[in-house]
Design a protein around this nucleic acid. Structure first.
Length: 507
DNA sequence: ATGGTAATGAC
RNA sequence: CUUGUCAUUACCAU
């Protein structure tokens, strides 16, 4: 007989779990009801939920740019009361469902981390010759409600819980005044979503296990190991067919079969067979982060920050550096410390600096005699004029030009009472009917207005066509109070659908 | 040991 | 006025 989730709502909707839930949630970003975390009344929430009169607030739809990518992340932000309710349930559900999950599933689970996943994958690759690297297309947004609810229904005894979860996943989103229904997928931002996503993909884990396949899965990102290319091809075909039965598809252009000699990236780590490394881009980021630790008013806080960052790096990244990267890292580290000393050499005496440096943690083990030499060299080098590295010298010049280009391409209007229009294919600024400035449209990619001016509709039309954004900045606060058009088309897409609605008779 | 904050980093 | 889960590290308090 299978173990079931037999807890009833009353058993975990208590004052204690309420307090726990409020602690675990961020206290920023209000939902649409505008309630702050300390304005949520537990008594009322509990009554509503137990009596099934509870209704979640629609989510706040938001698009934020993904890091280093020209894509947007679609978020739905629930109100605090809904987050709290979900959190209280998630805690118990997590405990129950975690027992059912595969040991090869690593995301969002207590005691598991992406590091474990990386090393597990490496260990598997020592036993196999081929690997399928793939991920699922629009995973969160593709989860099928009926299939998910069916699974939950099998395990959860108290059906009021099923009703709650249904309310949450089917809850719609507001973008400004436009409401978007939610027929499929779980919201990115809901507390329960990570767990629900694991429950859903547990079906695939079980399928892979039944077929005797070794794999490592982190959310929708996973690798499957095989003994030959043919085996990999067959497995992939079989997997695709299975995924169709749970309404999922693979991301075609991120799916590939690799042998021990071709590189691929999994969880931010470069794999080449069982040899791990980190990408040049990530490596540069690491160096930049290291340097940024010394931007401190006090030498001791700078050292504390550096030590914290180094300790953090030791837990995984340092183990993944190639010999070349190690060497570069050490050079950069030495340079960073020299810069730090240079910054404080005028205001602190030699002893104060030496005392601070003695606390310094090194990324790699350093013998005591060598350590003394290094510390001394930092002090000596700091006295010399600063000589930038070749790349830094070129970078600085590059940035200077980028700034200039940006200056050229942004039309920033600060003089009041002008009229911005389009004439003969150019943006023109007029004062009392006379043209004072002209700008070629093709060169402009942003317009910033922080004063009171007039704007012709032709300008707005041209800007929308060319995806030139217009920002209106408040003179006093320097904050943007309105933006017309973004360079990304995710939002305009919704806007156009709204316009098409307004054109109908129903409008 | 247990409680808190602030980083980073995977999705 | 940029979410969620998990992990790691550092610091502080008892």
């Amino acid at each position: 007989m299978m173990d079931l989730f037999s807890l009833e709502l009353e058993q975990f909707f208590t004052n204690d779990t309420f307090l726990n839930a409020t602690k675990r949630l961020k206290h920023v970003s209000l939902g649409l009801d505008g309630l702050k975390i300390d304005e949520v009344c537990f008594g009322k929430l509990k009554d509503e939920i137990l009596s099934q009169t509870y209704a979640p607030t629609p989510l706040k739809e938001l698009f934020i740019p993904k890091e280093n990518k020209n894509e947007l992340r679609h978020l739905g932000i629930p109100s605090f009361k809904d987050k709290i309710a979900q959190n209280m349930l998630a805690f118990e559900l997590n405990k129950y469902f975690d027992k059912l999950f595969s040991s090869s599933s690593y995301a969002y689970r207590q005691g598991k981390s992406y590091k474990n996943a990386v090393f597990r994958a490496r260990d598997f690759f020592r036993k196999y010759s081929h690997v399928i690297k793939t991920d699922i297309k629009d995973f969160f947004e593709s989860i099928n409600h009926e299939i998910l609810l069916e699974i939950l229904n099998v395990h959860i005894v108290d059906k009021r819980i099923i009703r709650l979860i249904t309310l949450w996943i089917k809850n719609g989103e507001f973008l400004r005044y436009s409401y978007f229904k939610h027929h499929k997928g779980v919201h990115q931002g809901d507390v329960l979503s990570p767990l629900l996503s694991n429950i859903y993909l547990n079906q695939m884990d079980k399928f892979l296990e039944q077929n005797g396949l070794d794999f490592v899965r982190y959310a929708d990102d996973f690798v499957i190991f095989t003994v030959s290319e043919q085996d990999a091809t067959n497995t992939l075909k079989m997997l695709k067919n299975f995924l169709l039965t749970i309404k999922l598809n693979l991301n075609q252009n991120k799916t590939a079969i690799h042998d021990k000699f071709s590189d691929f990236t999994f969880l931010g780590v470069n794999f080449k067979g069982d040899e791990l490394s980190i990408s040049d881009e990530k490596f540069r980021q690491t160096l930049a982060k290291l340097s940024s630790q010394i931007k401190q008013q006090e030498i001791n806080t700078a050292i504390t920050n550096l030590n914290a960052y180094i300790s953090h790096l030791k837990t995984i990244k340092l183990q993944l550096f190639s010999p070349e990267q190690k060497e570069n890292f050490n050079a950069h580290f030495n340079q960073t410390i020299t810069n730090l000393v240079r910054k404080f050499i005028k205001i602190l005496d030699k002893k104060a600096i030496a005392d601070a440096l003695l606390n310094l943690e090194f990324a790699y083990p350093v013998a005591n005699t060598l350590k003394k030499q290094l510390l001394l060299s930092y002090y000596k080098n700091a006295k010399l004029p600063r000589v930038k590295s070749i790349t830094a010298t070129l970078e600085a010049k590059k940035r200077e030009y980028l700034r200039n280009f940006a200056k050229d391409s942004v039309l920033h209007v600060t003089t009041p009472f002008l009229f911005l229009a389009i004439l003969q294919g150019k943006f023109v600024l007029k004062q009392n009917g006379k043209i004072t400035h002209k700008f070629p449209i093709s060169k402009i990619n942003q317009i910033i207005i922080n004063t009171q001016i007039s704007l012709s509709s032709a300008v707005i039309y041209e800007c929308s066509k060319r995806k030139i954004s217009i920002d209106f900045i408040d003179e006093k606060t320097n904050l943007s109070y309105a933006t017309l058009f973004t360079s990304n088309n995710a939002i305009p897409k919704n806007t156009t659908s709204q316009i098409s609605i307004l054109k109908t008779k129903k409008s």
